[in-house]
Design a protein around this nucleic acid. Structure first.
Length: 813
DNA sequence: CGCTTCGGACACTCAACGCA
DNA sequence: GCGTTGAGTGTCCGAAGCGT
């Protein structure tokens, strides 16, 4: 699976002069490939044809393909050593134990070695040799795992391996075996019940893995690394030394990482990452394979975070080429470290950081597919189980949480890109949210759980995303239109119920995070804005008339107006996050979060509303976003891109027609109508997007009654203009995509007096609602239970009802 | 007819082995 | 330590197949 992106110049030393952007782009005659004496290019080799070994070679020129030369040197030979007889005998013995325990073959069992018998070979078992913290915990149950399994079950295992294999717990608990940065989780009851033998098996696998790691044979039962298949068939064994940046540049990488990546992505503990980079700068050869992959991921994240000009200024290198080179290096490092079979958290950190970065740069389908592999690996490491269940050290517990939640975020994002349901759902994990602490508050040797800080910390941005994205997943699953509901044949919960859930989440986020944010501090403002944006998106998902066929006709005017304004602000603030000079350094991540819902809703409204200041504002927002997107090939690969492009075309045509009509009615320069200036960026730098929530928790406004002014945020001038332009027209009547507005058929509504935008903190609109529980003081466990109970109630309520929902991605069908 | 695929011959390389 | 050997790896010829 090559990615066609050619890491041009990779075959040469990165420091070689001909690796400069100019040299690479020079349209000169093909030059002899740097290692022409020995290697054919990758394409010629695959095709088994003669390669003239020029770069690019004649065959590649003719075929119009990228010409990539492999690094010099041959792949190491694979050993044909016979399988280890000792290993086979121990495996056979284990098979006997299994049969014995499953009661199928008592006879075989009688000849097998007792599970508790010490290993007879010289190979030490994990349990006996490692000082590892090995423990057990309750296996994931369909319902919520107890908040603290250790307490609720009386599990006494505090790093005491001698207690591991005793008592009734063996049939109830999964097992986590940890050793030197590696971990392996076994949830299957039979395997978990094998006690020491599990550890012995682990040991066997480890040993066999290490033996075959470098020399996999085709005849082997697990023939070593297949990562070459995943990342390209380069010489996996070849040293990546030459891809490390020169010594003085490493500190530049670190500075940029601290500034542009670490505030957003907290997978890696900063002090630990710093040590790693220092080591990489001093002696790249001293890094183990897992650390090397992580170091390259960090380098890649830095390059991805930079603009082309910044990349050139800091590293004297063309950004596109640098991304290709470091992507190549990361992929090779992941493959070398045997990602598909890894039990290393460091390697998984490297892989997740890599995918988060590459999601912006390349085909998101790659990330989407890789996400499932990452999830499997994470389950293998037991990341879906909270570390407290296994009495892990506080530091390790915390880092495992961070990694797991970043995987959750990535799952939600990439599944949204492709219109699929997320892989991860609530019943799969009991890993708690990371603690709200700074990186300096935690260190590997600590024995006491750190106290959570109030207010913003290094992980606040991440926490905000996790909290709401988790809710988004739950809402998307349980809200009207969810595919899940359609599949189980249910109608989904009522709008009221969804509203209530959103309000609970909103009030929690507002109280725990947003209210502590200082809007003059960029990362605080970004955290608060992102929080509101995701909440607004959640609100749109719940209320969007197109997510539910039966609501198209029933949505109230007030709701529709509020949704429209909310959607516009989602787009405006989304763009502001990317373009504001203070937050532009994080734009690399913000840009990956496409506001599909907002865009779809605004476009559909622009298609059916007449020209007015509000639609002008919407059009400004959408045009600005759209022009950015068309410049970024990445965005076009999302599944929703094509229908959105079609909708955009339709909206543009509608607007053009409306402008023509306007000119016919008022002349070429109508004084009565002026487009609102697009000064959004300068006027909203330190404000937050407001969600204009029409609530059905209270009485739904009567469609014929005057609109509640507080639910409509239009300036008085805008309404006056509207009224002037279309004196005998109701602009806000319900309309559908398939039925363009017929002005004569619409009855009049009262025009509310205007209110300034952004005048009310989000929380105010919730905190006065009845029946909203006070959630801010809840512990994570209590809060988690509230949310899970909510979803279970919803599912029970709607179990028998027929499906009539429509998934969000079916809007455009 | 042009292009791609792929079996297989051949050259090169190196780990394993025997020997002094 | 050195020479030999067998097998793994890389190159690419040429036949066969496919698409236009």
């Amino acid at each position: 699976m090559y990615h066609s992106a050619s890491p041009e110049g990779l075959n040469a030393s990165p420091t070689a002069s001909d690796n400069s952007p100019n040299a690479l782009h020079a349209p000169t005659a093909p030059r002899l490939a740097p290692d022409a004496s020995s290697r054919s290019c990758v394409t010629c080799r695959r095709r088994k044809v003669r390669c003239n070994k020029r770069s690019p070679c004649s065959n590649c020129i003719k075929a119009g393909t990228d010409c990539i030369f492999p690094p010099p040197g041959r792949a190491p030979r694979k050993s044909k050593r016979p399988p280890d007889a000792e290993l086979l005998s121990r495996l056979r013995r284990l098979e006997g134990v299994i049969e014995h325990l499953s009661g199928k073959n008592p006879e075989a069992a009688s000849t097998s070695v007792s599970p508790t018998q010490p290993p007879s070979s010289g190979i030490p078992s994990v349990g006996s040799s490692a000082t590892a913290a090995t423990s057990t915990a309750m296996a994931p149950q369909p319902a919520v795992a107890p908040a603290d399994s250790k307490d609720s079950t009386g599990c006494p295992f505090e790093n005491d391996p001698t207690k591991l294999n005793t008592g009734k717990f063996e049939n109830e608990f999964g097992r986590l075996v940890i050793d030197e940065g590696r971990s392996r989780y076994v949830s299957n009851r039979l395997w978990a019940s094998l006690g020491d033998e599990v550890e012995e098996l682990q040991d066997i696998l480890d040993n066999s893995e290490s033996e075959e790691e470098d020399y996999p044979s085709p005849e082997s039962s697990h023939s070593g690394s297949h990562d070459g298949f995943l990342f390209g068939f380069y010489s996996l064994s070849h040293s990546l030394r030459e891809y490390h940046p020169p010594f003085p540049k490493v500190s530049v990488f670190w500075d940029i990482y601290k500034e542009c990546v670490a505030p957003l992505i907290t997978i890696v503990h900063k002090p630990t990452a710093r040590k790693l980079l220092v080591e990489a700068a001093r002696n790249p050869d001293s890094l183990d394979k897992n650390s090397e992959a992580l170091v390259f991921s960090i380098y890649l994240s830095v390059i991805v975070a930079l603009s082309p000009a910044e990349c050139l200024a800091n590293f004297g290198e063309d950004r596109t080429l640098a991304v290709k080179r470091y992507r190549f290096a990361v992929e090779q490092a992941l493959a070398k470290a045997n990602l598909l079979n890894t039990q290393s958290m460091v390697l998984l950190q490297a892989a997740v950081l890599f995918l988060i970065c590459i999601r912006r740069e390349d085909d998101s389908k790659f990330v989407w597919s890789m996400n499932s592999i990452i999830l499997r690996l994470a389950q293998g490491l037991g990341l879906h189980r909270d570390g407290t269940n296994f009495a892990l050290k506080p530091f390790e517990t915390e880092m495992r949480r961070r990694l797991w939640w970043h995987i959750c975020l990535m799952d939600t994002r990439s599944s949204e890109d492709h219109g699929t349901d997320p892989l991860i759902h609530d019943s799969m994990y009991d890993t708690r949210l990371p603690l709200n602490v700074n990186d300096d508050d935690i260190y590997p040797e600590m024995t006491e759980t750190p106290t959570e800080r109030e207010g913003c910390t290094d992980v606040t941005f991440c926490l905000v995303r996790c909290e709401i994205t988790c809710a988004l997943r739950r809402a998307n699953y349980s809200c009207p239109g969810s595919r899940a509901f359609k599949m189980v044949g249910a109608t989904g919960p009522s709008i009221e119920r969804c509203e209530k859930m959103i309000q609970i989440i909103s009030s929690r986020v507002e109280e725990r995070y947003i209210k502590h944010c200082d809007m003059n501090i960029p990362i605080h403002w970004a955290s608060a804005t992102v929080a509101r944006l995701i909440l607004a998106k959640l609100w749109l998902i719940v209320h969007h008339p197109m997510t539910r066929k039966d609501r198209i006709a029933s949505v109230s005017q007030a709701t529709r107006e509020s949704l429209f304004l909310t959607a516009i602000e989602v787009l405006e603030f989304g763009r502001l996050l990317e373009s504001d000079p203070k937050t532009a350094k994080w734009g690399w991540l913000f840009r990956t979060n496409m506001q599909w819902h907002g865009v779809a809703f605004v476009l559909s409204e622009v298609c059916v509303r007449p020209i007015c200041p509000v639609t002008d504002r919407a059009w400004n927002a959408i045009s600005s976003l759209y022009s950015d997107w068309t410049l970024q090939a990445t965005h076009k690969k999302g599944m929703l891109w094509r229908p959105l492009a079609a909708l955009m075309k339709r909206a543009a045509a509608t607007r053009s027609k409306q402008q023509e009509e306007l000119r016919n009615k008022f002349g070429p320069n109508p004084t009565a109508y002026k487009s609102t200036p697009n000064d959004f960026a300068t006027s909203h730098q330190h404000t937050l997007p407001q969600i204009h929530m029409p609530t059905t928790l209270n009485a739904e406004p009567d469609q014929n009654a005057p609109l509640n002014p507080t639910s409509i945020d239009l300036t008085k001038g805008a309404w006056d203009t509207l009224q002037y332009m279309f004196p005998d027209t109701n602009l806000l009547a319900p309309v559908t995509l398939d039925s363009p507005p017929v002005q004569d058929s619409i009855s009049a509504v009262n025009i509310p007096t205007g209110l300034p935008l952004f005048n009310t903190p989000l929380s105010n609109s919730f905190m006065n609602q009845e029946n909203i529980p006070e959630t801010n003081s809840l512990s994570w466990e209590e809060w988690d239970k509230v949310m899970r109970d909510f979803q279970m109630d919803v599912e029970r309520e709607d179990e028998a009802a027929p499906a009539n929902g429509t998934h969000v991605t079916e809007w455009f069908a």
